[in-house]
Amino acid sequence: MNTTLLIFLLVLLAALLIGIALLAYRLVKGRMPRFSRKSLCIPYAVFLVFFVIIPMLVIFFYAFTDREMHFSFGNFVKFFSDPTKLSTIAYSIVIALITTVVCLLIAFPVAYILARSKMKKKYVVLMLFVLPMWINFVLRINAIRELFNWMGLLGETNYFNTVFGMVYDFLPFMILPLYTTIMKIDNSLYEASCDLGANGFVTFTRITLPLSVPGIMSGVTMVFLPSMTNYVVSDMLGNSMVTIIGKFIYEYFGSDWHMGSMVALVLLVVVFVSTWLTGGFQSDENVRGANL
């Protein structure tokens, strides 16, 4: 039977069993069981177990087994002794870094101007920046491909094309959190700064920049991580001459799941470390709704 259908049916069955259990409880005890607010988390917990934790364990299992399914560090050793794989990780990080920095440089002024201006229709302008997200991503990349071809860049500047595509694709993810954070900076702070005689530059470095750090961080996380793996962009705009880590994972899953899982696991660690570096795990309240 089709696996997808099977999973769907299992979920349905689980819902059904819960329903029957509730009714049975009702029949026996004569009242519905009392739920605390915590039990609202149950569906999410179930989802978490089935679609996050179990798949993660499966990846872990494959990464540390060989073809005969025996436990082995072979893939681990092979990965870290292969200069190609290490280089690919380095290339992916560099491409992602450049993408993030360029996105930040473009997005910050845009978000700042939009958030601080007294323009009446600034939502329209903001929408124009976000609008491309509503159009299918492959379609947009295809359009850029044609544009690059017309400009004679396709096949010539593969790395530039890849970074351009990534920036184009992920820019809205940088603008939105920045816009929300800058919007929320209290206007009285600017007034105070003006009263105390600070010039524009000082106001920017002492007020705007420090207070928009949460927005920068969440923007950086949302741009940096996907641009390490989005190989559709590097394939289409870089003519498959640029290989990033996501492509590696895809190719290995065609032939060797164990190595593929190991690459995925290493990527997971890189993602974990970079999220942690940018403070993504901070639970304090100063994130101030910057996360979308």
Binding site: P83, T84, K85, L86, S87, T88, A90, Y91, S240, T243, K247, F248, E251
Partner: peptide, 14 residues
């Protein structure tokens, strides 16, 4: 194939 497709840096760079 993966070594052909991807760029490999020199040992010192790595």
């Amino acid at each position: 194939w993966s070594q052909i497709k991807a760029e490999t840096l020199d040992a010192w760079a790595i």
